[in-house]
Nucleic acid binder design. Structure first.
Length: 819
RNA sequence: GCCGGAGUGGCGGAAUGGUAGACGCGACGGACUCAAAAUCCGUUGGCCGCAAGGUCGUGGGGGUUCGAGUCCCCCCUCCGGUACCA
């Protein structure tokens, strides 16, 4: 190829496919276990095969690929695999609207996207490709489900769940987004439905999921997860009811126990039935009825007026023996804490509003700053005072900073309550009423209840012949024969579970399947696991902070506890790319017509230009609006680079200084590029290389030593290899190299070349820049000082003033303080 | 409301507490061309000035410091998350 293409213009359209073909033929990107070398597992989030590789995919993957390539040149044995998150709704919707089988739709999309990915020039070992819709894959998704079920980490319960009326399926809490509770996929507002569904016990790992030790994750993601998990410390306190049951509540303010004037239960609370008096029965039942209906319609805003009803029952406050009325209200949620609260209207705004609405007593028990306890009826809102406790029996006068601790100690000593922690995190709802997913490997038997499908019968295959009607029922339920089976336990008549699994279950372990996609003795080959795991660099969008990234951490920890794998965390380092917006700064969408089509750009500019521009155009973690003219700059850079390479340094007499300066710049750039690759600061990598290129241009005009020129190119092309792999390879071979630049190692920095003979001394007077001097390195401080004071630009600002102080920063600047 | 993050030229963006605006886009001027495009060279934060130079300048206000885009406090705006979570 080197001969034929020696035409002299940079033509990516011939050069790029030729190299791609050769790399594939030579197996350049195969990664195998090599105990001799340190490993590096680089991973980008599993793409959904939606049909075409869009600019967002490019943005996620091309810079990540450059980073992986850099790590490989640094001597790591790099695994950078790729696959597809192939189950999911769009495939099924295509079936419904166009009559194409979801499988056909999915696999033809995969074909196309695989080609597009190859065209990007990614360093992917395609032998390890995994597709989550393959039976050889979901076999193990089902196997994991079984293991979780055996360990009681999967369970089935009837509960009010979020239902998307457009997707016709339930959703996990994490998949309901925004103020108005919309479906994460299709933005339809969700509704509540009471259904029997499968859940994973993510809450069992709430505490452990809060620690991120040993992880290099963005602070932002950790915060999102912490908030999502929502840990609150407090006390659980038991109130006896007059009907004889124990009513347990959770509170973060046990120090206000003496201010309790009533209790509130969630309408669904199991004790409601027992507590309500005959007189209140009809009213209570009517309230329960309307509150259930209300949540079905839509969740109303938080600031609507409080509603509730008295149950007619009473409980006894364990700290003072007082009899307090028990109410029900929908501002208390069954799904948090114990579904019951003690109400302290004087110090909790929600309780306050409720008390005022229904004429309940308000009793302050925290002294305000003025030291005078107000009357409850005078308050206009719950107080946020932080004075000592008041009217609180034995704890009266306890100062605020000791109040919580003192109360907890008191409660424990008296046997009334104990320290307790509550989490906002809910268990993960994994049932989906859709066809195109991994079937839940369970059989329902009238005699034995839900029974796991035996391991040797896995996978439970999806039948091909199914009606895809958006009925709200699982399509598998409508299949004439599929669901009828014998119970694996008793042999009696039974039915298969017809729901499929949330696709987040598939993506919770794909990084493990990549290790050994053909392995059939288990989900992954332990030898591969031992060598490659954990993932060293994980890249993807921030939108998965509380979905995929919590699920996969939970999954990993659960599997660790089941003895399936080792280690506490699946992904050591995480980085998020931002979003590319349209040129109008709006989110890209077909309806807005602001979508950037990568294929067209690649046709026009080539992959290398595209890759380089994606690295350069914005801060990667931030993203931003696309600028189609900006790409010209990157294209120009590579074209000029091509030209300069072929023009050479020319025949000028050698300029020693230019030569020294060039070598210094080369090694400085090498240092900067290496540092920035480590931190995934892609934009400054390209900027630094452009700067070096500019200096090489100047140096060639000035005249440089051939050895220095040669060295510059040798280093330049290796730095370029991760960014523009095809161009770097082509020029590398044109220099006469016989092996691939992608097998070359990252250049070594020559510390000597970095040394400088002189430096610019900045002279400030009162902090303002007044002059600059070029001085030899090693100029004694005393001389620096005098030279600074005499410097022309500075002198006129010093004249006639008193020099108070002279700050000398060696090798950098002098600041003369005058007055 | 609460929890994060961000505000730097016309634009994208650079800057271990030490020369603000690297690099690129755009714009302007010039060369080449019959012409245009491409390419090449130069200029390009605002204001004052013929110039030398001066002066202002990193959302606003205060502070720490010899010195602040960078650290601290208060505020404003935008973006993201979350929201009757007891």
């Amino acid at each position: 190829m080197t001969e034929e293409t020696r035409l002299d213009t940079y033509d990516p359209s011939t050069l790029e496919p030729a190299w791609q073909e050769r790399w594939e033929r030579e197996g350049l990107y195969r990664s195998d276990i090599d105990p001799e070398r340190p490993k590096h597992y680089a991973l980008t989030m599993l793409p959904y095969p939606s049909g075409d590789l869009h600019i967002g995919h490019w943005y996620a993957m091309a810079p990540s690929d450059a980073r992986a390539r850099y790590m490989r040149m640094r001597g790591f044995n790099v695994l950078f695999p790729m696959g597809f998150d192939a189950f999911g709704l769009p495939a099924e919707n295509a079936a419904i609207s166009r009559g194409i089988h979801p499988s056909e739709w999915t696999y033809s999309n995969i074909e196309r996207m695989r080609d597009q990915l190859k065209r990007m020039g990614m360093m992917v070992d395609w032998r390890r490709e995994s597709v989550s819709a393959d039976p050889t894959y979901y076999h193990w998704t089902q196997w994991f489900f079984r293991r979780l079920l055996e360990a009681d980490l999967a369970y089935r319960k009837r509960a009010p769940v979020d239902w998307c009326p457009s997707c016709n399926t339930t959703l996990a809490r994490e998949q309901v987004w925004g103020d108005d509770r919309r479906c994460e996929r299709c933005t339809t507002p969700v509704v509540r439905k009471e259904l029997s569904q499968w859940f994973f016990r993510t809450t069992r790992y709430a505490e452990e999921l809060l620690t991120f030790s040993g992880l290099d994750w963005p602070e932002r993601v950790e915060t999102l997860q912490r908030n999502w998990i929502g840990r609150s410390e407090g006390a659980s306190v038991v109130f006896e009811t007059e009907s004889g049951s124990a009513l347990e509540i959770f509170t973060t303010r046990p120090d206000t126990l003496w201010g309790v004037t009533f209790m509130v239960l969630a309408p669904e609370h199991p004790l409601v039935e027992e507590l309500m008096s005959d007189e209140q029965r009809s009213e209570v039942e009517a309230y329960i009825e309307t509150s259930t209906r209300q949540t079905e319609i839509q969740r109303e805003s938080a600031d609507r007026e409080k509603t509730g009803v008295f149950t007619g029952g009473y409980a006894v406050n364990p700290v003072n023996g007082e009899r307090v009325p028990v109410w029900i209200a929908d501002y208390v949620l069954m799904s948090y804490g114990t579904g019951a609260i003690m109400a302290v209207p004087a110090h909790d705004q929600r309780d306050f509003e409720f008390a005022r609405r229904f004429g309940l007593e308000v009793r302050p028990v925290i002294l305000p700053d003025d030291g005078i306890l107000p009357l409850g009826e005078d308050l206009e809102a719950a107080t946020t005072d932080s004075g000592p406790m008041a009217a609180s029996g034995p704890l009266t006068d306890t100062p605020a900073d000791r109040a919580l601790e003192a109360t907890l100690t008191y409660l424990e000593a008296e046997g009334i309550g104990e320290r307790s922690v509550s989490y906002r995190l809910r268990d993960w709802l994994v049932s989906r009423q859709r066809y195109w997913g991994a079937p839940i490997p369970v059989v329902h038997c009238r005699e034995c209840g839900p029974v796991a499908v035996p391991e040797e019968e896995l996978p439970v295959l999806l039948p091909d012949d199914v009606e895809w009607l958006p009925t709200g029922e699982s399509p598998l339920k409508l299949h004439p024969t599929w669901r009828h089976v014998d119970c694996p336990k008793c042999g009696g008549k039974a039915e298969r579970e017809t729901d499929t699994m949330d696709t987040f279950m598939c993506s919770s372990w794909y990084h493990l399947r990549y290790l050994s996609p053909d392995y059939d003795q288990g989900p992954f080959d332990p030898a591969e696991y031992d060598y490659w795991m954990p993932v060293d660099t994980y890249t993807g969008g921030i939108e998965h902070a509380t979905m995929h990234l919590i699920y996969t951490r939970f999954f990993h920890k659960a599997c660790r506890d089941l003895g399936i794998l080792q280690g506490d965390e699946p992904m050591r380092m995480l980085r998020n790319q931002g979003i590319i917006l349209g040129e109008d700064s709006e989110k890209m969408s077909k309806s807005r017509g602001n979508v950037v089509a990568p294929d067209e750009l690649v046709d026009y500019y080539g992959t290398d230009v595209m890759r380089a521009y994606l690295m350069f155009f914005a801060r990667w973690e931030q993203g931003g609006p696309w600028n189609s003219r900006g790409i010209e700059g990157t294209a120009r850079w590579l074209r000029r680079l091509w030209n300069l390479f072929h023009e050479g340094a020319g025949d000028h007499p050698v300029d020693e200084e230019a030569t020294r300066d060039l070598r210094r710049k080369v090694h400085q750039t090498l240092q900067k590029v290496g540092r920035d690759f480590e931190e995934l600061q892609f934009n400054t990598i390209v900027a630094a290389m452009m700067e070096l290129f500019n200096q090489m241009s100047e140096a060639s005009a000035a005249g440089v030593e051939p050895d220095a020129w040669d060295e510059a190119w040798s280093i330049y092309l290796r730095m370029l290899a991760p960014v523009a792999p095809h161009l770097a390879e082509e020029l590398w071979h044109r220099r006469g190299e016989k092996t691939s630049v992608h097998r070359a190692s990252w250049p070594e920095i020559d510390e000597e070349a970095l040394e400088v003979e002189s430096f610019t001394l900045v002279i400030q007077v009162n902090g303002k820049l007044r002059d600059r001097l070029t001085l030899p390195v090693g100029t004694p401080e005393k001389e620096i000082r005098t030279r600074a004071l005499e410097a022309e630009g500075a002198a006129k600002f010093i004249e006639g003033k008193t020099v108070r102080k002279v700050i000398v920063v060696p090798g950098r600047l002098v600041n003369v303080v005058v007055s």
